[in-house]
């Protein structure tokens, strides 16, 4: 242990790298492409930059979790459908998404948006006020609507290609895993339960809603929370497509200050906190809501 520590100290001195978290108070000097909640400018501190990164991570993670749950549950239930087409579409979806690395999928979506979509002047407009172009997806907010000015849109709100690619990639990828969890949960419910429900005259939708799903949920929640955690961790791949999440910004910070140890420690501490909180929640859930 001492061997490593002494080497580290020597190396840091040699490269004139500072130690400690003092750098957090210094001016960052770089711009951040987008920020979900906070305002930020190059004159703000590193600390603020990192916080912006964190909020960006949380933004994409939370929206991703909600969307992935919806999509995943739909696909999972579709896998159990009696309709041949629905069943096999869903199965093909799951099989494909689970066997291709997430990074490949992120690059793919990014390429689709930046290469496949038309420029702002020929933007697609599926709904009034919503424009899809290779500069991003523009949609109206309560206060303003996007308008074409010159080569780009102004006004309204925008999903940057980076955010959109990350969100779509994370959602579609995680949904495949959630689909399998939902399917396994429903299958785990004893056949006799559906038989008894049918014998009592309950219809198929009633049986699913009143008898099967409540029991399936207990089996589904633990692995589902695991997937939520995976989605959050996977959002760190943002660094590969240029979305300024926590890892991205920490990376830039590390490059500028040279303080790699502090930077990585920060990243790990944040993610560890998130993971342990979710684990704690799951333990609580198992203890209090477990199958009676």
């Amino acid at each position: 242990m001492w061997f490593f520590a002494s080497n580290t100290i020597a190396n840091l001195e040699e490269r004139k790298i500072a130690s400690g978290f003092g750098f957090l108070g210094r001016e960052a000097g770089f711009e951040i492409g987008e920020s979900a909640f906070l305002r930020y400018g190059a004159a703000d501190t590193y600390a603020r930059a990192l916080v912006v990164g964190l909020t960006n991570t949380l933004a994409v993670a939370l929206i991703g979790i909600v969307l992935a749950t919806g999509l995943g549950t739909t696909i999972g239930l579709s896998r159990l459908s009696r309709n041949f087409l629905l069943r096999n579409f869903a199965a093909a979806y799951v099989e494909f998404m689970r066997n291709v690395p997430l990074l490949v999928q992120l690059f793919f979506w990014y390429a689709v948006i930046t290469e496949g979509m038309p420029g702002p002047r020929e933007a697609l407009s599926p709904l009034p006020g919503v424009f899809i172009s290779n500069r991003g997806i523009f949609f109206p907010t309560f206060s303003s609507a996007p308008e074409l000015q010159g080569f780009n849109f102004t006004g309204g709100a925008v999903l940057t290609p980076e955010f959109a690619a990350l969100l779509i990639g994370l959602t579609t990828y995680t949904a495949a895993f959630i689909a399998e969890i939902v399917r396994a949960g429903v299958l785990a419910v004893d056949r006799g339960q559906t038989e008894a429900a049918h014998a009592l005259g309950l219809s198929r939708p009633q049986t699913t809603r009143l008898v099967v799903l409540p029991q399936a949920l207990r089996v589904i929640v633990p692995p589902m929370t695991s997937q939520y955690l995976n989605l959050t961790k996977n959002s760190s791949l943002a660094v590969a497509i240029g979305y300024p999440d926590l890892v991205s910004i920490a990376n830039t910070t590390m490059n500028q200050t040279g303080q790699a140890i502090e930077g990585i420690a920060t990243i790990m501490a944040v993610y560890l906190t998130i993971s342990l909180s979710i684990s704690a929640f799951m333990n609580w859930y198992n203890a209090h809501v477990a199958m009676r």
Partner: peptide, 26 residues
């Protein structure tokens, strides 16, 4: 186990690529 499973792989790769050289004699 909890530490490694709680952090993203990318942070471990960064750790290896950036921190490991610091731990070794110049």
């Amino acid at each position: 186990i909890e530490l490694i499973r709680g952090v993203p792989l990318i942070s471990l790769l960064f750790m290896a690529s950036v921190m490991l050289p610091l731990f070794l004699p110049s």
